[in-house]
C-alpha cells in the first residue's frame, strides 16, 4: 500500500515488475535508470548472482514531481523470474500498489509466460490482492526478435480482460516508459478513487 506522509508531504508507491525468467524485467529498470535525470532518481540496487540473474530483487526509486504540493515517489522493484525463487517473489509483492507483467514474446517462452501470470495471480491472492482489481498493465517485450508470437495471440493468451498493454523492446527502450507511465497513472487514479 502507498505511504502518505503529511508531515514531509510525500506519497510513496510501489510498482513490481513480474514475469518469467529472462523476459527483461531488470532491463526495463536499467533503461529507466539510464534515461532519468540524476535529480529524479536514486541509486539502482540489483541483488543478483555472478551471472547477473536476479537473486532477490532490483530496486529503483524515482521522484516524478509534485501533485498538489505532494512529492510523488515511485519505488520500482523486479522479482526474480526463475521458477524456484517463488518464496522471494511472494515477499516482494508485499505492499504492492501496481504490477507490470513483462511477457517474453518469443514463441518458445509462451508456456513460461502463462505459468508466470498464473503464479502472479496466486501469489497476489495469498497477500489478499486480486489481480483483476489492482493497477496492472502488460508489456510484450522482445518485439525485435524474429521468432515472436503475434500480438493477437499474446493478447488472447495473456490479456483476456483487455487491460492496457504495450509492445516493447527493453534493450533499446522502446515501450519502456509508455509501460511505466501507464501503470503509474493507474495507481494515481486508484489512489484518487480510494478516498
Amino acid at each position: 500500500m502507498s505511504f502518505i506522509n503529511y508531515a514531509s508531504r510525500e506519497i510513496n508507491c510501489k510498482i513490481v515488475y513480474y514475469g518469467p525468467g529472462l523476459c527483461g524485467k531488470t532491463t526495463n529498470l536499467q533503461f529507466v535508470y539510464q534515461k532519468t535525470a540524476p535529480e529524479a532518481k536514486g541509486k539502482m540496487i540489483s541483488l543478483a548472482t555472478e551471472t547477473e540473474r536476479t537473486l532477490f530483487f532490483d530496486f529503483l526509486p524515482l521522484a516524478l514531481g509534485e501533485i498538489r504540493g505532494f512529492k510523488t515517489r515511485f519505488h520500482l522493484y523486479t522479482v526474480p523470474g526463475q521458477v524456484f525463487y517463488d518464496a522471494s517473489r511472494k515477499l516482494i509483492l508485499k505492499g504492492v500498489d501496481g504490477v507490470v507483467f513483462v511477457a517474453d514474446s518469443q514463441e518458445e517462452r509462451m508456456d513460461a509466460n502463462i505459468e508466470s501470470i498464473e503464479n502472479l495471480r496466486i501469489n497476489l491472492s495469498e497477500q489478499g490482492y486480486d489481480l483483476d482489481k489492482i493497477p496492472y498493465v502488460i508489456q510484450y517485450n522482445k518485439r525485435d526478435l524474429p521468432n515472436v508470437v503475434s500480438i493477437e495471440e499474446l493478447r488472447k493468451e495473456l490479456n483476456p480482460t483487455n487491460i492496457p498493454d504495450f509492445e516493447a523492446c527493453a534493450t533499446t527502450g522502446e515501450g519502456v516508459f509508455e509501460t511505466l507511465k501507464a501503470v503509474a497513472k493507474l495507481i494515481l487514479i486508484d489512489l484518487k478513487k480510494g478516498k
Binding site: 500500500m1 502507498s2 505511504f3 502518505i4 506522509n5 503529511y6 508531515a7 514531509s8 508485499k94 505492499g95 497477500q127 489478499g128 490482492y129 480510494g194
Partner: peptide
C-alpha cells in the same frame, strides 16, 4: 487488503 494504508501526520511525526 492485508495491510491498511500507511499514513503519517505532523503531530505523530514530531512525537
Amino acid at each position: 487488503m492485508s495491510n491498511p494504508q500507511m499514513v503519517m501526520y505532523d503531530e505523530e511525526f514530531k512525537q
